[in-house]
Write a protein that binds this DNA or RNA. Sequence first.
DNA 1: GCCGGTGAGTTTGAAAACACAACGCTCTGG
DNA 2: CCAGAGCGTTGTGTTTTCAAACTCACCGGC
Lengths: 164, 164
Amino acid sequence: MSSATPPHPTVPGRPCSVAAALQLVGERWSLLAIRELFYGNHRFEQLTRNTGAPRDRLAARLRALEEAGVVERRRYSERPERFEYHLTEAGRDLAPVLWSLVKWGDKWAVDAKPVAFTHQAADHPEHEVDSVTVCRTCGEQVTSKEVAISVLAPGWARTGPVDL
Amino acid sequence: MSSATPPHPTVPGRPCSVAAALQLVGERWSLLAIRELFYGNHRFEQLTRNTGAPRDRLAARLRALEEAGVVERRRYSERPERFEYHLTEAGRDLAPVLWSLVKWGDKWAVDAKPVAFTHQAADHPEHEVDSVTVCRTCGEQVTSKEVAISVLAPGWARTGPVDL
DNA sequence: GCCGGTGAGTTTGAAAACACAACGCTCTGG
DNA sequence: CCAGAGCGTTGTGTTTTCAAACTCACCGGC
């Protein structure tokens, strides 16, 4: 993977990709900054205005995200030094996380949908994006009842730590 | 929509379902507690052990999640009063968020996958779940290039606030 | 040359959130 | 009667977070 990828920090509790992911992008303001980058807003000023984050917090988050390899800083002015922020491949891979949060938020966290997304591709008619998470293999939405969990990390089971 | 749903708090910055969703489930430990509930661990002791959260933080989060209508408390013992925590419909609807975080974390935040999920349904052979977020209408994975954003909230455009 | 304005942060001091350990309370098993 | 499990709560410091002010460097008029 990219050369920027740092050693992964250990997480408290159960070894888990969710915990590891949240360690990198789960702090307050991080995902909102990433949202703005997806929207095509790359300047610090826009990020503060549109997320509402305090400037110092945003600066700290952007540095952490850069270190995590999620965001890339590009200089667009030499003097004074000015940077824009862009998503790396890892950052762009967060799209499904945002899609699912939008979907959930639309249903459970807001009264009226504040933003809509239109899918416009050459080969089919325009339509609103209605995102859904499915299993690629069988093409179906997966309900938790049909899923068996295999804990691969040693010392842990579904219910918690096991004595070795 | 459940009767428990409280009035939605306003978010800083752009009106946005992502921000609204994170307001409810974005605090530290919340999603990890929800993960454990998906795993079928419902007791306070398990939640602390498996998430690594401090007991007081976990207690605070569970109360906030209950208030947000994501988690439900069930008494399983009268004396002493003891509760288990279960997901509501809103909570179960967070599955796609967790799937996408697992997927991203597996790829970008851990060295080796700590947990695997096997899909076992009556009508087809067992296989590992490989989650992917698609558009329900056209069935395709949606890349941000093909998506147009329509900001419905008054006073806001894609690039930020507009003067009225 | 001076004046206000913009962009990108950094600094500051008070307020909130956090972590950790210890405690209390109630039952259960020996 | 004592030990222990289970579930939080409380008390005590330590970190984060916040909002506002400040810095630094340029730009564009006039």
